[in-house]
Each structure stands twice: as C-alpha cells, then as structure tokens.
Design a protein around this nucleic acid. Structure first.
Length: 449
RNA sequence: GCCCCCAUAGCUCAGUGGAUAGAGCACUUCCCUCCUAAGGAAGGGGUCGCACGUUCGAUUCGUGCUGGGGGCGCCA
C-alpha cells in the first residue's frame, strides 16, 4: 500500500493546516504497518504548477536573491513576494499573463528559470527538513523526500495520449476536459487552453508511475484535506475509466481544516499560522514548566499531535493557542505524565514485577482496568480499518484516566504482597499499552517530566 | 443554482437504535509526612439546531428546513 500524506507546497508556508495531513497520514501508515501491510510512505510535494509562474515573476521583478539567500527563513520572503504578486495582480490583471508565460518557460526547460525554481525547492526543503525532524516524520520513497509533482513532468504527454486514445478527452473552449456520464460530476480539466498541465494531469502521471513501479494491485491512500473530496472522486473515476484501478484500490482520507474562530486562514492574504512558530511556542511553554530541552521538545510535540489526533478528522478544528498547546486534562502531556507515573512505580517495584505466583484474585477496579486494557488490539484494528486515529486517542485517554483513578485510590507498592504483585502487573500492562498506542500515534514518551 | 461535510454543557469536543447523554477547559470546594498534584475527589451547568417520519423505543436512521464550513474547467 502507498500512503501519500503531508504534501506541502514549495515556496509556501508549512502551516498548522499541513499538520493534519502530515500526522494523520503518518498514523494511518503506522497502523497499517502493524496490522501487517507493506507500507510505502510517499510525500506528493507541490513543486510544480502555475503558481511558480507567479512566484518567479515576483522574484525577478521585486526580489533580491541575496536577500532571500541570507534570510534565516527564506520561504517567508518568498511568501511575501507571492502575496505581493496577488495584491498587484488585483490592480493589474495583466500580471497573470506574465505569470503564465513564466510557467511556460519553466515547463519548456529554460535554464535561468529552471535554476531559480531549483533554488526555491532547496530553500523550502530546509524548512521541511526542520519540521519533519521535529515531528519525527519520515518518508520511504525517493530517498526520503517522496516523489514531488515535478518528477512526473516527463510523463504528462503519455497520459494525454492514453486519455485521447481511449476517447475520454474532449475539447472545450480550447482546453481539454473529461466529462462524466449523466453529469455525475462536473467536468475535470486535464490541460489548459495554453497547453499547460494541471494538478489532475500530474496526479494521473503519478498514479501511472505507481502502477508500473509497484504493480497493478497496489492500493493508494491519499490523505488530503476534505476540500478536495470532489476532485478525488473525479480523479478516481477517470482512473477507473482508464482501466487502471478497481475502486477499492483508491481511497481518499480527508480531514477538516484549522480555522480561526471568526476568519479564514489564507496564504494569499498572509494570515496563516506557520507550524514552525507553533512548535517554538509549544517548546517555550513546555520549558516554562521546568523541563530540560529535550523533554520540553518531546512534550511540546506530544501536545500538538495529541490535540490534532483527538479530533475526528472530518470536522474543522478551531485554532486557539491555549487549546492546541494544552498541557492539562485531555492532552499529550497528560498521556506522557501517566506513562511516567506508571514507569516510576515499576522502577520502585524492582524485582516484584518478575514474580508470578500468588497474585490476588481480580476484583473491583483492578478487574475493570484489566478488562479495559485487553480491548487494545480490537481498538487498533477498528481505528485502522476506519482510518480513524481518533478512535485510538479516545481509547488511550480513557485508559489513562482509569489508570490515574486506580493510582489514586488503590495502593500499589504499599498493598499486601499478593495484591502488590497483581497491581504491579496491571501497572506494567497499562504502561505497555499506553506506550504502544502512543507509538502508533507517532508520540514519543519521556523518562521524566 | 447544484454537490459534499457539520450542528451535543458557557467554550472546545467525544459518544450510542435502548437505562439518570460523557470528557477536557473555565467556575466553586476539597486531597501531597504516603507510588511524580502536568494528578485525583465533589459540585453547578444539556428540550443532543428545528419539524415531520420509520421504530416497542431516535441524540443515533430517513426526509425537509434553518444555521455554519467547503467545493463546483483554465489554482492546488
């Protein structure tokens, strides 16, 4: 199986919005892997498309390579140029034509344009690399970077020819489109009137490549925001019409977006939240609670990931600093804290945990907890089959809550010998399940906090 | 205009064709000579958006409406 996730865009901010695809996709890949699938992790980086025409025009017109190069955050400068382009284009629509010409130059292999594009890719990967290492996210394909859209640039013509030979292509106002039976979906545009490629063209080339590289029976999961649901339905239908895939081989796992309470986030308007800034703020808050640097970073990432993964994916998430960096209650740090507590008990119990005989019979809260622990495999399977990490977070939170109640109300190390052995074993089992579950969620536990 | 998603406590969200619908945050009050208090206990707070329908029974399923979000050929 291929799980495609994260897929940030070159020369655009890696925002809080990309966090969703990045970590939900990672968790889905983890879950599929432990349930026995051979998983390829791919990152469909947006490194191609007409927006590069706009960007290249803006850099050449208003930018300075030295300034970008020497900036601690080059992408930020690129985004400012991109925003500037849109502001200028609102007043002077002629700029859109210049941008189209620049993209044509890029597609036709013009050396200077190409060199500039390469720089943009490098600048962006500096930032992506930083974020992925902070989040502990990896990809397996194309030397760990995933196959970006530009990788398939050479295959676009083949795709157009195959579509054409199967009579799926239609001319419309100079552009090439695919229409659907009974107007099931609106038409999907495959080539613009100036001949330039589109997202769909590149996606088709991508999936063609996957078929030939991984085999005709490969299944692909696209973890991409729900705003693209219609697009994926169109794409899957075209791929079915082409005879490439059975419907069961293609799955779109969508998710809602991060929103401000009263306004939208928009790259064009510049009111987005950069993930880099969120991570820095999370680390600052975790440090204030008296953690050393490495623990603070783990705790910060845990709070971010947990607060995303605990939501059902289809709903939008309201962006609120105190909410997403919550360190109390239903939060990442609560989960880590519970594991730390349990481990601390186990450390003090020492040899006791290896003894077997003489455990007291199960009753009351002990038994409820044991029962709940035993549900773990079933929950993992359910979460995997439904592509719902939140099923797992809900379960793990309930388990942590139950353990904390148990911890508070039942003496462990001070109980009589038989009860102590039993409760230490329950503690060990709880810690084991919490650690395994958190690992599936891509959350690292800490020794102390 | 058409299509998709959503609506549950003051806020943010879980959840189920069946019993007094749950959590976190916020608020009030307790609990560290004792396994890490980033924890635990107790309390107030809900006509589960509205209406109709299916059902012995609907917050859960269906239809309609209202409200919010997203999408609908030259962005991705």
């Amino acid at each position: 199986m291929i799980v495609e996730y994260s897929s940030p865009n070159i020369a655009k901010p890696f925002t809080i919005g990309h966090l969703r695809s990045t970590i939900i996709g990672d968790v889905i890949a983890n879950m599929l892997q432990v349930t026995g699938h051979d998983v390829k992790r791919d990152n469909h980086v947006g490194d191609w498309g007409t927006q590069f025409g706009k960007l290249i025009y803006a850099i050449q017109e208003w930018g300075s390579l030295e300034e970008i190069e020497s900036s601690p955050r080059p992408v930020k400068v690129l985004v400012e140029l991109y925003v500037q382009f849109h502001e200028a284009a609102d007043k002077n629509p002629e700029l859109e034509n210049h941008a189209r010409e620049k993209f044509k130059l890029l597609e036709s292999g013009d050396e200077d344009t190409r060199a500039l594009w390469n720089k943009c890719v490098d600048w962006s990967w500096k930032e992506f690399g930083y974020i992925y290492s902070k989040l502990g996210i990896t990809f397996t394909e194309n030397n760990g970077r995933g196959y970006g859209e530009s990788f398939f640039e050479k295959n676009l013509q083949t795709v157009l020819e195959e579509l054409s030979s199967k009579n799926l292509l239609k001319q419309s106002e100079g552009a090439q489109i695919v229409e659907f039976e009974d107007e099931k979906y609106p038409p999907l545009m495959i080539a613009k009137s100036d001949g330039a490629s589109l997202y769909a063209t590149r996606d088709l080339a991508t999936d063609k490549f996957r078929l030939s590289t991984y085999g005709n029976d490969i299944s692909i999961i696209n973890e991409v925001g729900s705003e693209q649901t219609l697009y994926f339905r169109q794409l899957y239908e075209v791929e079915r019409l082409l005879g490439w895939f059975q419907p069961t081989q293609r799955t779109h796992v969508g998710h809602g977006l991060y929103r401000f309470k009263d306004q939208k986030m928009s790259t064009r308007k510049g009111n987005t939240i950069w993930l880099e800034d969120v991570i820095a703020e999370a680390e600052a808050r975790a440090s204030k609670l008296g953690n050393d640097t490495s623990a603070a970073s783990q705790i910060a990432i845990a709070s971010l990931k947990w607060n995303d993964l605990k939501h059902s994916p289809q709903q939008d998430v309201i962006f609120d600093w105190d909410q997403i960096l919550n360190m109390e209650g239903n939060s990442g740090p609560y989960m880590l804290y519970t594991v730390v507590r349990a481990n601390s008990v186990l450390a003090k119990a020492g040899e006791t945990q290896s003894q077997n005989g003489g455990a007291a019979p199960l009753s009351g809260e002990d038994r409820d907890l044991v029962r709940f622990i035993s549900k773990f495999p079933e929950v993992v399977l359910q979460a995997t089959n439904q592509y719902l990490p939140s099923t797992l977070t809900t379960y793990l939170f309930q388990l942590a809550q139950q353990y904390n109640v148990f911890y508070q109300s039942s003496p462990i190390l001070k109980a009589d010998e038989n009860t102590k052995i039993l409760r230490v074993m329950i503690t060990a089992a709880t810690a084991q399940v919490l650690k395994s579950g958190l690992k599936l969620l891509g959350i690292q536990t800490v020794e102390k906090m």
